[in-house]
């Protein structure tokens, strides 16, 4: 599976609904993701992609849409 599909998969599980049609929506603004879910996301991404995503690296402005998360993960995989 490509990185994008896997990230969407993780997001769908955490959020509890399909977000693949709202790839550029700010999920903090819509309340779909909160701090709690964010930590789940970071841990799931660490587990899935073998990347380091500490809380300090989590800048809300850089992680606030599904597309941005995909980009972040791709850059962290390098």
């Amino acid at each position: 599976m490509a990185v994008k599909e896997e990230v969407i998969d993780i997001l769908n599980t955490i959020i509890g609904e399909d977000i693949s049609d709202q790839m550029d929506d700010d999920f903090f603004e819509s309340g779909l993701l909160d701090s709690m879910a964010t930590v789940e996301l970071l841990l799931d991404l660490e587990g899935k992609f073998d990347i380091q995503a500490p809380v300090s690296e989590f800048d809300r402005n850089e992680w606030n849409t599904p597309n941005k998360v995909v980009n972040k993960v791709e850059s962290l995989i390098g």
């Binding site: 709690m36 964010t38 930590v39 789940e40 809380v55 989590f58």
Partner: peptide, 22 residues
């Protein structure tokens, strides 16, 4: 408090699996 206490506590509790329920 959210970034340096809440999220870090949650991170620790989830990573070490201290509790099952989120």
């Amino acid at each position: 408090f959210r970034d340096y206490i809440f999220m870090r506590l949650v991170f620790l509790m989830m990573k070490k699996k201290w509790f099952k329920s989120r």
